[in-house]
Design a protein around this nucleic acid. Structure first.
Lengths: 262, 262
DNA sequence: CGTCGCCTTGATGAACATCAAGGAAAGTGG
DNA sequence: CCACTTTCCTTGATGTTCATCAAGGCGACG
């Protein structure tokens, strides 16, 4: 994966207790949602020296937990590469997937009143994250205030998003849910610089189904339908979107109609 | 309604352009969620002189809009008496009810990036609200910072709540949705000092159905079932909860079983 | 007393969950 | 590299839940 060329500067990364030197180019700050307020980006320009503000840049492997439900909130995380899954475990042990975080997105809006994580976050593939210590953050008042402001705006837009989502989850047909999910993923992945028509969804069908409150079988059947309708090309976890217009239309709540592209 | 006894101090209230003197006891600050940070409560004790910080205490009547989707955000509102309904109008003109605000609750977490309201809020019965001017707020830096902090915590807990809600809306049976709603309303009304077993839900069946993403008929049928099962006594908009245990159990996702109370 | 809006009740159908089983890919150990 | 297991995904058959259509009741209000 790390194909040679370790010429440039490197950041010290903690991976499962071991120290690793990771070339800075693996930290894609130019996709980071916190770019505008990151001390780093502002003080150092686009090529940051992460070790200055990130207390513990960390490398997580597939299946590693970033944190668990009930853990005290110690770090504020931003995904720098990879994908994570956020889920809540009910008292009965049932999992509910509440979201996926992609490159540049934060995963820490889940902490509740008691300063403890309200959900589990797990890496779905190799992921490195910026982990900013909350203690350290509290010491730097200026940054703290700015961050709170930024997070608040983020939270508000999240709530607005949830209102749409709630409507979708409650009234939306399975078709529309899945279309929304694909559309959402495509546009978010596009923000990270990937081509939006050819996307890789690392999460399992089961996770997608869980997230959308559908049965696994329904998701499977729908993918087949989408494929039959020539909306998607599907190969395992690789998706190529053929008919964006149809997908977008369905994501907005319309049922599939053959000549949506017209 | 305002049964005589205008002995005590009064606040100047603006109702549809007209000025009204409203006895302070109609402002139930002791139920207000912002009590801890409200300048008023802290400086004046429990009996506040609202005119000091509330730019426009306002009286709304049934059907009046507090604000409309797209309006610039001018005030930060706290419900002081009455109930409001928050809903989003889709481009096609469909209404989606996203929540109800009761006494002591704020209604302003809906504003989006552009500083404009993202939803409509309408009074369901006679309501008076504390309307704190956003401009004024921005001038008072200290309060602003505290308020932002408070609102952020509020927003985070709202997001956590939405995660549960999403699960309920997506996977939950109609039974569970309605039980959750009743349970939620009862406990929130209890916070305002009302007896929790005898509650009045001023919103229409249609609004409840819309909020829960159900058909009106389904809500109607379920109320009948709940009544048949001796969980509720229903008279028009008056509800008396007979079997709290059963209701709570159903609110958590269980189906109704006859001897839940055992 | 009549009209209107809101709520209730009944009949029907469609969408999706569930149950069940088969298949393909990925990991495992020799 | 090849059998083996396991996990994940697909496909089919069946049933339940709830939306929808339709009509009737009941209170509110003029």
């Amino acid at each position: 994966m790390y194909s040679g060329q370790s010429t440039g500067a490197a950041a010290t990364v903690y991976a499962n207790g071991r120290v690793v030197q990771l070339p800075l180019r693996y930290f894609t700050c130019h996709h980071c949602k916190l770019q505008e307020i990151c001390v780093n980006a502002r003080e150092r320009g686009s090529q940051p020296n992460l070790t200055d503000i990130i207390d513990h840049p960390r490398l997580f492997r597939r299946g590693d937990y970033l944190f668990r439900q009930g853990d005290p909130v110690r770090y504020f995380y931003i995904i720098n590469s990879g994908v994570t899954k956020q889920f809540i475990t009910s008292p009965e042990g049932a999992e509910k997937v509440v979201g996926f975080s992609l490159v540049g997105e934060s995963v820490s809006l889940d902490y509740c009143e008691g300063g403890r994580h309200n959900s589990n976050v797990i890496a779905l593939d190799t992921a490195n994250v910026c982990a900013i210590s909350v203690n350290r953050l509290n010491r730097e008042k200026g940054i703290k205030a700015e961050l709170t402001d930024c997070l608040f705006r983020h939270a508000v837009s999240e709530i607005n998003r949830h209102h749409e989502l709630q409507q979708l989850m409650g009234h939306g047909a399975a078709e529309n849910k899945l279309a929304f999910f694909l559309n959402d993923m495509a546009s978010r992945l596009q923000n990270t610089g990937q081509a939006s028509d050819a996307i890789v969804l690392v999460m399992s069908r089961h996770d997608i189904a869980n997230y959308l409150c559908l049965a696994d079988e329904t998701v499977s059947r729908l993918f087949r339908k989408f494929s039959d309708w020539r909306i998607l090309d599907i190969d395992r976890k690789q998706f190529r979107i053929i008919d964006f217009a149809a997908l977008r239309s369905m994501a907005c709540g319309n049922r599939y109609t053959f000549s949506d592209t017209a």
